[in-house]
Design a protein around this nucleic acid. Structure first.
Lengths: 216, 216
DNA sequence: GTCTATAAAAGGATAGAC
DNA sequence: GTCTATCCTTTTATAGAC
């Protein structure tokens, strides 16, 4: 797997001083391992040594591929956002069935909550640090823009077809993503929380609020 | 302000070895300052020295009142849960007006989201560490039991009076708290997120899903 | 590319003066 | 009770061998 744009960008940025070869499969490996750890604990609770160890490599190797710990963290966030994003993009195609698409979007959160909550967790950590990394901000922007576009388009389409009533697309979209974020957090905080059940309840609630009658 | 039960308990626990005076106003001060920092950053991102500095005291003082950093953290979590809990307890009295109580509960989250999101943030950190502290678990249990009791009772009462339709009290309760947790998280992650607006939208949707017509 | 060794700094925690 | 001084450990990061 090749480095993505932002990773390549950051390599270039710090390699102006050191000058080192480009294109690295091992960097992606390290990023994956680090993301796992950063999502489990927190940025400062994870040591460079533990990342190296988990990746089966010496910690010094990390500094070959990344400028410093923060640079690795940045790569992790972007990777988490990217992974989440890719799973959504498939749903964007299906504009014919608004309720089906929304439903699919909810299901995606159930199936991939392990991936998605990594993104939420790491995002919290990132936002808690006062650092502002332009490439990370761009990732987020892209993700949320896509999310809004898909959901709002579905609601508008549903209203246009007379399937939904009373719907403010933006409000519905925000409501839904806020709930889903809550579900991700709760699945971390409450051991007995069941994402599938909770999302199922939300779907019923949403249909009722939208005045939608599922055909069945 | 006197130490609360759990703080006193923990002091007793480690003082069996050291034997030191009880009842400390300064301990509460240190806890408050530390909670602020732990909520802003994360457990391991906050140093003992920085806590002392923020409290206008030497970091060594912390070890006079607390066994170690984790013990201080525990006191912070319990304090955060306790603060959130106290704001809820007032609402528990009002059983005559189900919709009003639910509404008040939502408003509480708007007004006190700065306090409540501290609890969410610190809880995430706590649950991410593998530590299990019995006194903290007890705090949580108390909080969630109270939350469930208030909300579920409201929904049941509303159904009994014919104000609400189709309502599964437990599902509504979980739905609502999950949404509110999501709102807390989003207010951290997204700078432009407005808790008041989001909760306002949720209220409308809840009423619609419950088949409730606000008198007005 | 990957490792060993190590410098340099920061953090948690304690002893003891006041 | 609160502070100074200090110890010990961990951690980030670099230099340089292979």
């Amino acid at each position: 797997m090749a480095l993505n744009d932002s990773q390549r960008q950051s390599k270039r940025a710090w390699e102006r001083l050191g000058s080192r070869a480009d294109g690295a499969p091992r960097a992606a490996e390290l990023t994956a391992v680090a993301l796992e750890l950063f999502a489990q604990k927190s940025f400062s609770a994870v040591s460079i040594k533990s990342i190296g160890e988990a990746a089966g490599a010496n910690s010094a190797l990390i500094y070959y591929y990344f400028k410093d710990k923060e640079d690795l963290f940045r790569a992790c966030i972007e990777s988490a956002v990217e992974q989440s994003f890719e799973h959504f993009i498939a749903l964007s195609k299906n504009r014919d069935d608004p309720a089906g698409t929304i439903s699919g979007w909810l299901n995606t959160h159930v199936e991939l909550y392990l991936t998605l909550r990594k993104m939420v967790k790491v995002s919290l950590d990132y936002k808690s640090s006062s650092a502002v990394l332009p490439s990370v901000e761009k990732s987020y922007q892209r993700f949320y823009a896509q999310e809004a576009e898909v959901l709002e388009a579905c609601v508008r389409e549903g209203v246009a077809r007379g399937l939904f009533t009373h719907a403010d697309p933006q409000a519905i979209c925000e409501l839904t993503s806020t709930f889903l974020d809550g579900a991700m957090v709760r699945s971390i905080i409450l051991p007995e929380f069941d994402v599938e059940t909770a999302v199922g309840h939300f779907r019923e609630f949403l249909w009722r609020a939208l005045g939608y009658e599922p055909a069945k």
